[in-house]
Design a protein around this nucleic acid. Sequence first.
RNA 1: GCACCCAUAGCUCAGCUGGAUAGAGCGUUGCCCUCCGAAGGCAAAGGUCGCACGUUCGAAUCGUGCUGGGUGCACCA
Length: 581
Amino acid sequence: MNLFADIRELVVAELQGLMASGVLPQGLDLAAVAVEPPRDQGHGEMATNAAMVLAKPAGMQPRAIADALAARLMADPRVAGADVAGPGFLNLRLEPAAWQGLVREVLVQGTGYGRSSLGQGRKVNVEFVSANPTGPMHVAHARGAVVGDALAALLAYAGFEVTREYYINDGGGQVDVLARSAYERYREAHGLSPEIAEGLYPGDYLIPVGQALKDKYGDSLLDQPESVWLADVRVFSTDMMMEMIREDLAGLGVKMDVYSSEKALYGTGQIEAAIERLKKLDLIYQGTLEPPKGKAPEDWEPREQTLFRSTAFGDDQDRPVQKSDGAWTYFAPDIAYHYNKVMRGYDELINIFGADHSGYVKRLKAVVSALSENRVTLDIKLIQLVKLLKGGQIVKMSKRAGTFVTLRDLIEEVGPDVVRFVMLTRKNDVALDFDFDKVTEQSKDNPVFYVQYANARINSILRKARGDAGLDVSDASLSAAHLAHLGHEAELEVIRKLGEWPRLIEIAAKGHEPHRVAFYLYELASDFHGLWNKGNDDDSLRFLQGDTAISAAKIALVRAVGVVICAGLGILGVTPVEEMR
RNA sequence: GCACCCAUAGCUCAGCUGGAUAGAGCGUUGCCCUCCGAAGGCAAAGGUCGCACGUUCGAAUCGUGCUGGGUGCACCA
């Protein structure tokens, strides 16, 4: 149930009635008619723009339409008032009973309240993290992991069929570097001093890999040329790295449905097939790129390469898929991979990338629309940087100096729930400050705490209601409460907020914007705390009253707020706390 | 040189896809706890939404052009 959607249906039905009775001309397009919460509370509880969007096509004054519509809407038992205002807004007030019924609805549906059929079972693939399997995950990956996971949960909640997918970049030169680095650690495990040359990965995390290599291969790889061991060590090391990454993800509460391997695309003909397909569309050709404008690289020389015509899609340059020696560039397997996703029957693809991949967006979108003949959409969410702050100081990170903060460190310090929530308190395309002092602070300034505190208070009230007042606080029992007792404006205000939840889900899902959920929860928590505080001044707003029937109604509202908070936290992947300590 | 992202209160940020008098937290100022739900609450001040045109009933939101900041830019993934 979605009260805003219900009322919109009512508005549309009445508009059709007006068309049928000749007040409005036939055949008006009603798609733009919206029913929304007004920004200003003084403007009623719901507002519709119907009169304004229809005025021009109908050739009528907005107010004339609004008046006619208002008269018809008033006949509905849910509508208590309909006032024309401003340039032609129709402001609606609903009968308290309509709002009170919403509380029952929440209790009956539980965390399914707000679930939407928006997606209609369409298949969506969310590819995220996709960190190179060459080391542990660090903070920059964490944000992408959280955003991707929450977005996937949000879409599932909104009725999409979602796959969480990780693309393992195990096909390129960086895994050779990994193998060579691990080989040095293998030598080290045999008591030899490792030679970590410039360009190799110096991190300690490879020491256990070297040890494991020794356990498996003994000394059989020592003093052998690279050609003997490289392939085996590469597989062995990337497997161990992926194992580590999986554990890191598990620590964050992220579980992928599918791991796809870049390497696995080679030698299967998949790359060739995808390129062939593009060639048929005349998007692949042999050519020579212009030298880069601005500062030209020293060693620039024109080379003939196989190019993808991404300029046809607004890119500023065509992009090479083959090097001059005939080997594939990294772009080629990416084309094949996205072709593969298209062929698996997804309706929508979403990629979560770091902001440093911005230059990659156009060509990938081009590839997907070409290979799917515009059937499949690709949305790429670029995740901006995370700046770590501690004691007011920026925590400087440098891979070379070994001072980068791993995801594991972060989780150990503040816990997965805090990491997840905080990472979602900003739009993806805005840089985020992660302040260690702030996120562990217990104050209104800290949204994690504030939302968790609301939930803890709710649980505390429920315990008290059960214990002291001997109330049956099961949802079944509470949903039978006489909800007309929830007549106070402060209570109705909280209920209205609950009414926005289903609407928010659809907006957030449409825009692929999970951060909206976090902000909504903060607002809901804030409204709830406000209601609690009003109980200080006005005894009638306290949740437990002398009269059991009244208490039951108020506890039903409290519980309904708890249900929505839990549903929201569930989407964010944050564990609701029962008690603050 | 080009592309992408960002610019909203002193600070950190929302702003429901074009709606009405642009919101929240922090900070500032002023009130409120011998008791009842103060790890707090109530209230006030604070804005040419970077600038300029344009689109229309209506723009923080859409378009164009600027300004300032960030990121990325040929056989690395």
